[in-house]
């Protein structure tokens, strides 16, 4: 089913990828909610060490479900992975709890930010290090490291997180996850409900974290344009299946992606209203 759009992949990258196993490998998973609702129908994807991989798609495509299956947060929402496997650093995750995965270095930043509203910004960050047993001095150091990436949070450190702006809450959520010292982050829609300027600010920080801390990132986004700008590789998910994947640059140039996700066509920019839905269905599913 997968259509690879870029046969001319960078050879050296391919060789490298073959030499080094991916940090995260999702193999053909199927997810069912409440024993009846089939949400993912055979999703496979890989995240190479130190890369940013974007998982794109519309509402209800299964992006969040994919991330939650990886972090095993799915279990508390009555969902279950019924087929396929997920391996993080070569170890299957299906028997692990979210807490154990955090300990192994995999942290999810949930959709909708989920800050602890009644804790201050700084306390929120500190809870991120809960699973690590570190002393006061080291905790202080870790906080300063996070504040270096998010200077805005340093200013707002003693405000209750519930009273901070949406962008600041997103920063708290990402910073809190970084306090666990993860080697891999799962970011679920960091752009949700934010002004374009703030979105750019947050994505710059994410790229910074990726480059300076070497964190591999799997990013679920609806904002295809921004996501492809910052990601190395992209997967497009529709109705629980991967429809297309390729290097981010190739995807951004792809005709179908342009038409369906970026609102462009060969005749220039086009309104989504003019698009015929039957055509979409015919082409994609």
């Amino acid at each position: 089913m997968n259509v690879s759009v870029a046969p001319a992949v960078d050879r050296s990258a391919a060789v490298q990828a073959a030499a080094q196993p991916p940090v995260l490998a999702v193999k053909n998973i199927e997810v069912i909610y409440n024993h009846v609702i089939l949400v993912l129908r055979g999703v496979s994807l890989e995240v190479p060490q130190g890369k940013i991989v974007a998982l794109l798609g519309g509402n209800g495509a299964g992006k969040s479900t994919t991330l939650k299956s990886i972090s095993t947060l799915l279990a508390s929402e009555r969902g279950a992975v019924t087929k396929g496997s997920i391996e993080f650093r070569g170890q299957r995750t299906d028997q692990l709890t979210p807490g154990e995965l955090v300990g192994m270095g995999l942290v999810q930043v949930m959709e909708g930010r989920h800050c602890f509203g009644h804790l201050t910004a700084e306390e929120n960050l500190i809870t991120g290090a809960y699973a690590r047993s570190i002393g006061r001095a080291q905790l202080r150091e870790e906080l300063d490291r996070i504040y270096a990436y998010f200077p805005r949070l340093k200013v707002r450190r003693s405000s209750l997180a519930g009273y901070t702006s949406g962008g600041e809450q997103q920063m708290i959520a990402i910073g809190r996850a970084m306090m666990a010292k993860p080697s891999m982050l799962l970011l679920d829609e960091p752009s949700m409900g934010l002004a374009p300027q703030i979105v750019a600010e947050i994505f710059e920080i994410v790229r910074d974290l990726n480059q300076k801390e070497g964190v591999s990132i799997l990013l679920a986004e609806q904002n295809t344009n921004v996501a492809l700008k910052y990601a190395d590789y992209g997967y497009i998910l529709e109705s629980g299946r991967i429809m297309l994947d390729g290097p981010a640059k190739a995807l951004a140039e792809n005709k179908d992606v342009k038409e369906f996700y970026l609102g462009m066509s060969s005749e220039g920019r086009k309104s989504f209203r003019d698009m015929k839905s039957y055509r979409r269905r015919k082409r994609w599913v």
């Binding site: 508390s76 979210p98 930043v109 949930m110 602890f116 804790l119 666990a180």
Partner: peptide
């Protein structure tokens, strides 16, 4: 630390789970 974890859990179970508070 336990007290902070406790207040975090009170605020948001799912988020507490996601960052590894047992």
């Amino acid at each position: 630390k336990v007290g902070r974890g406790l207040r975090a859990v009170a605020d948001d179970h799912a988020a507490a789970l996601s960052i590894g508070i047992p």
